[in-house]
């Protein structure tokens, strides 16, 4: 299983803070996972559209789309950060 988490505007738009999904296939990258999630429902499709600035974290560290996802991982999607 994968734990998928959404924060801030993406949490609101997708309608969920967290969801568990089966790893769609071995060797999947974060960018491919984002594409797979877009196919799951219309809200995810809109929130994770390629034209939008979406940042990602793999197991609570910032990552880019090339990072490979493994079973048990936590993958987070969120807007560019605005702390400080």
């Amino acid at each position: 299983m994968l734990t998928i988490r959404f924060f801030a505007r993406l949490r609101e738009e997708t309608g969920s803070a967290e969801r568990a999904v089966e790893l769609p296939r071995e060797g999947l990258t974060v960018a491919q996972l984002r594409g797979w999630l877009r196919g799951q429902d219309a809200r995810l499709a809109a929130a994770l559209d390629d034209g939008r600035a979406v940042r990602t974290a793999l197991n609570r560290r910032m990552c880019n789309g090339d990072a490979t996802v493994q079973d048990g991982d936590e993958v987070a999607f969120f807007p560019p950060v605005t702390g400080g």
């Binding site: 505007r9 974290a57 910032m62 987070a76 969120f78 807007p79 950060v81 605005t82 702390g83 400080g84």
Partner: peptide, 12 residues
């Protein structure tokens, strides 16, 4: 501070 503004996961 500069890195915190772009790398720490906070949203206002």
């Amino acid at each position: 501070m500069d890195r915190l503004k772009t790398e720490a996961p906070f949203w206002k």
